[in-house]
């Protein structure tokens, strides 16, 4: 529904990362997208292709998408079930007191990049979850 906004944020985050870590080229970006995050992958790829040439560091980078399955937790019976198959109502006890455990994510899992100094050092950030 708002793929353009997400791609805009993605490009910003990648540009900042490139600056911080002195990366000259990002070869690939692996994005984990939740099954019920509302992101339409076709549109998302279109938006990515539109923004990519506008950021030199991303110019020839490949977008890889991974899907995170949606899982719901039921407060009523303490079980989990597939969100997409059953929706908000628990298939075991019919309770409506259910919460999404996973499936709403949009996380940059990893990038492949070349750095200015050509160092092979591995670095990582704390995982932040603002969903």
């Amino acid at each position: 529904m708002h793929e353009m906004g997400i791609v805009l944020h993605l490009a910003e985050t990648l540009n900042e990362t490139a600056k911080e870590q002195r990366l000259t080229r990002i070869g690939s970006v692996t994005l984990q997208v939740g099954e019920v995050s509302g992101i339409m992958t076709d549109y998302f790829i279109d938006c990515w292709n539109y923004f990519k040439p506008r950021h030199p560091v991303l110019a020839d980078s490949e977008l890889r998408l991974e899907t995170i399955p949606a899982v719901t937790w039921c407060d009523g019976c303490g079980r989990t079930y597939e969100t997409v198959k059953y929706g908000r109502e628990c298939p075991y006890c019919k309770s409506g007191e259910t919460w999404l455990l996973s499936g709403n994510e949009c996380i940059i899992k990893e990038i492949e990049a070349e750095s200015e100094d050509g160092e092979e050092g591995e670095s990582s950030f704390e995982t932040e979850d603002l969903n």
């Binding site: 940059i108 990893e110 591995e122």
Partner: peptide
């Protein structure tokens, strides 16, 4: 080319 693990929410910058 090296692999950098980010594990960063795309909307994290907006959140900050």
């Amino acid at each position: 080319m090296k692999i950098i693990e980010l594990g960063k929410n795309v909307l994290a910058a907006n959140g900050a």
